[in-house]
Design a protein around this nucleic acid. Structure first.
Lengths: 277, 277
DNA sequence: TTGACAAATGACCAGTTAGTCATTAGTATA
DNA sequence: TATACTAATGACTAACTGGTCATTTGTCAA
């Protein structure tokens, strides 16, 4: 057990410097002063070690910020406490934070990407909860943009001290970001990330969409939609799906009709793929 | 020459999917349908290929946004044009953009990190120039924060379409970010990134390009280029470098001639700086 | 001191890597 | 056709990878 911890600590240093792939088990065992066999007594594989590291630190980080969001009574302080907790965690576990920034998008292993991804979702969920607590209905249309901006702040400013070894004043940094976040929350009027777009991201991107799935989605939208160009276009597109009669250029025009309607973007996306545009 | 291009194009696809390290020369040569030996006739090493790719695309991207910043007359449109050019570039060269996001912080090779770094600094410089043009003295204390926020927007929103295969409306996205940027520029009062902090981060970066370096580059391009408007323009620009005789407006016209040729963008950028446009 | 058992070792395996080079194929000139 | 030269090949090397396992070492109780 104690050896497991030793390996985790020592390997973290190497991973932070070189990345997962570029760090060999040999290097790790040398850095720990143990043999290769000993390593495999503690972990079944290199992947298992990596997974253990990610789970260990991510669960800690997420619990931290979740606690802050759920237990800060004073709304005026919530944002500040959130940012403070974030940068505090990042500084205390800077080796892991470095890995996080480096590997999040890059990992060779498909499972790891999924893992990072699902943790990322959790973080977004916590941020969303915070935003809704703070601003409520005011940010109904801009809340997803706000999530992305907050995440952008977190990652850009983290890089400052993670990769440049600059000493930072977490207090000032958090205050500064609180002001920026409030500004965006209170005055943004042009959202980019719609609920629809979020749906697109959420759904695992399967390459092939079946006709049936699209039809089902269209049916659903037809119920929601009032009479409009979009609705009429959707009806024609549905017929085209069932029995192709229109020429490609007409289909393309119909797709263009629904392109800018926020609730039809996903369907448009799927149809473009289905029709091969 | 033509083979070099083939290798660059095909390897880009693999690098974008798997990253630099996880892509072997073997895979690249198979993907190209050539032998291993043929690869090493075009590039001295795998590293040289990677370096060539980065230089090729980064110089194009930087030239693009620099041109926009320097040549958008209407201040009201500048920010929009900047964001639009950014996302346009990213979409048109999405394979490279994916690499950029993935490898920027991660590269195994020390030289690559420095390379990315110096390009990053160039981008920051262009953004700074834009901000100072737009807001002048108003953002004297917050301009460095603004740079980081803009970079944060660029990277977070890029990830949306780069990694989720989501179709995006560049127009709306740019508008949305223009509003956010303006909000931050006009109302931020608590800066975090001071000039001091920037100094700490700054590592020496060769800012100035000598006349000789540009001349050398031009000579090289002249050999590669077939007879064309671009080539004739380059010849005249070379003469202008050696012995200034043409009026600024003529020089500007020549620069315009080579602007959209993918192999001349970098030279265009350097020349614009050299002639002070 | 002996014997039993777990802990730890490192030589070894099969596979992959970047890079080389003797050999061959292709092509243009005489 | 013969010669000269370049372009291209792919078997090869040496180094390294994650992972295994027969062997050795250390630590107990009897």
């Amino acid at each position: 057990m104690i050896k497991k911890q030793l390996i985790m600590e020592k390997s973290l240093e190497l991973f932070a410097k070189q990345g997962f792939e570029a760090t060999s088990v040999q290097q790790i065992t040398e850095h720990c002063g143990i043999s290769k066999g000993a390593f495999y007594l503690s972990f079944k594989s290199k992947d298992e070690l990596i997974t253990a590291l990610i789970d260990h630190f991510m669960s800690q980080f997420i619990s931290n910020i979740d606690y802050v969001v759920k237990n800060t009574i004073n709304d005026d302080q919530l944002l500040f406490e959130f940012y403070y907790a974030t940068f505090d965690s990042f500084q205390k576990q800077s080796d892991f934070a470095r890995i996080l920034v480096k590997e999040q998008m890059q990992s060779f292993n498909e499972d790891l990407i999924l893992k990072f991804h699902s943790y990322d979702r959790l973080i977004e969920k916590i941020i969303l909860e915070m935003i809704e607590n703070l601003y409520g209905e005011d940010v109904k249309h801009t809340k997803y943009d706000l999530i992305y901006c907050i995440k952008g702040f977190m990652s850009m400013y983290s890089q400052l001290f993670l990769f440049y070894n600059v000493p930072i004043d977490s207090n000032l940094l958090s205050q500064s970001l609180v002001e920026k976040t409030n500004l965006l929350a209170k005055h943004t009027t042009i959202p980019f990330i719609s609920e629809d777009l979020i749906d697109m991201i959420k759904q695992p991107i399967k390459d092939d969409v079946t006709k049936e799935q699209v039809l089902e989605l269209i049916e659903q939208k037809l119920i929601e939609l009032g009479d409009s160009i979009e609705k009429q276009s959707l009806i024609l597109l549905k017929q085209q799906l069932l029995e192709p009669t229109l020429s490609p250029v007409l289909v393309k025009g119909l797709l263009e009709n629904i392109r800018n309607h926020p609730h039809c973007k996903w369907i448009g996306f799927l149809l473009r793929r289905y029709f091969g545009f």
